[in-house]
């Protein structure tokens, strides 16, 4: 671009271009980036720093910092049985939902990746749960878990097995919520994994077939290694999703029974908007932030090296 101007006014070549000219591209770029930067600043970065700041204070009802207490909020949380319980429930919930959810989605993606007649219909069905909101899905599952008229207990009754209090028994509630969550997330995971499978080069399979390799050999030696970036991505997303679960808790159990499903985001929500303890709620939010941070850093660091890229 600058050559045009130099041609037109050769005298000016001697003078180095001024700061204004040199930064012209930077200024244009900023113009295009400004909307994003302002919005991120106002709704992501500022609130994040504000959350960290508030976590060192006791707050008033309007969420203003009132008394500086240093690390007391954190100390209080680490000694509070309720928070430790919530942390435990969250970790259990992650363990229940992530491996099972990814394996289920992988299985569906594998069988839906075959070139068969009518496969498009099955793909649509498998991705359908992505179109069902958390609220709608939770309401449907709430009914299926219903003690007397829900379909799970009706089904058990066929075999003369007694009722299970899916959502009312502290031993079952977290498991039940996890099952419904796996179902809700299947559509999205399936869609991403199917996309990953379809990106694998066909030729790899053709040569394997000539060598007479069987289905499971191909799966182990070609499909899974080539799919590993996608798999790693979907594991990360599932982990983050599990940490962020809220809607299903709010509708299915409200954190109960006996706090057994009081997952971290629900706990933050209650602490802040029901109990108005914005300081300790912020400290919990910082914990959540750290968990997600660790997961994403692992994804960036570990994921890039360990997985096979095409």
């Amino acid at each position: 671009m600058s050559t045009l101007r130099e041609d037109a006014a050769p005298v000016e070549v001697i003078k180095p271009p001024g700061v204004w000219t040199r930064t012209r591209r930077g200024r244009t770029a900023i113009l295009y980036l400004l909307p994003s930067i302002i919005l991120f600043g106002v709704f992501v970065f500022y609130p994040m720093f504000r959350t960290i700041y508030l976590s060192f204070f006791l707050t008033d009802q309007r969420g203003e910092a009132a008394v500086f207490v240093g690390l007391d909020n954190y100390r209080y949380l680490l000694e509070s049985a309720a928070f430790l319980n919530s942390a435990k429930a969250t970790i259990l919930f992650v363990l229940y939902t992530v491996p099972a959810g990814v394996i289920l989605a992988l299985f569906l993606a594998l069988i839906a990746n075959e070139k068969l007649k009518g496969i498009g219909f099955f793909r649509t069905i498998y991705s359908s749960t992505m179109g069902v909101s958390v609220a709608a899905a939770s309401v449907v599952w709430l009914f299926m878990f219903h003690p007397s008229i829900g379909m799970f207990n009706r089904f058990l009754a066929l075999f003369d097995i007694g009722q299970i209090q899916w959502l009312l028994d502290p031993d079952w509630a977290l498991f039940s919520v996890a099952i419904s969550t796996i179902w809700m997330n299947t559509g999205f995971s399936f869609l991403i994994l199917l996309g990953g499978l379809q990106n694998i080069n066909e030729h790899l399979y053709e040569s394997a077939k000539i060598d007479g390799a069987g289905y499971f050999y191909q799966l182990r030696r070609i499909t899974l290694p080539m799919l590993s970036p996608t798999l790693f991505f979907i594991i990360t997303i599932s982990l983050i999703n599990a940490f962020q679960s809220f809607g299903q808790i709010d509708i299915l159990t409200k954190g109960g029974p006996a706090q057994s499903t009081n997952l971290i985001v629900y706990s933050i929500y209650r602490e802040a908007f029901v109990n108005y303890q914005f300081g300790t709620a912020s400290a919990q939010a910082v914990f959540l932030f750290l968990c997600i941070l660790v997961v994403t850093i692992l994804q960036f660091r570990f994921g890039e090296r360990k997985v096979h890229y095409q």
Binding site: R25, A29, P47, T51, G63, I268, A285, F289, L293, T296
Partner: peptide, 27 residues
């Protein structure tokens, strides 16, 4: 638009992906 500081801005964008929305909902 290649400009100075593009890597930094890019890093800013990536870092927003590490901040869960739920952690900032109170402010």
């Amino acid at each position: 638009i290649p400009f100075k500081g593009r890597d930094f801005v890019f890093f800013l964008f990536i870092s927003t992906m590490m901040i869960p929305w739920e952690a900032t909902m109170i402010p």
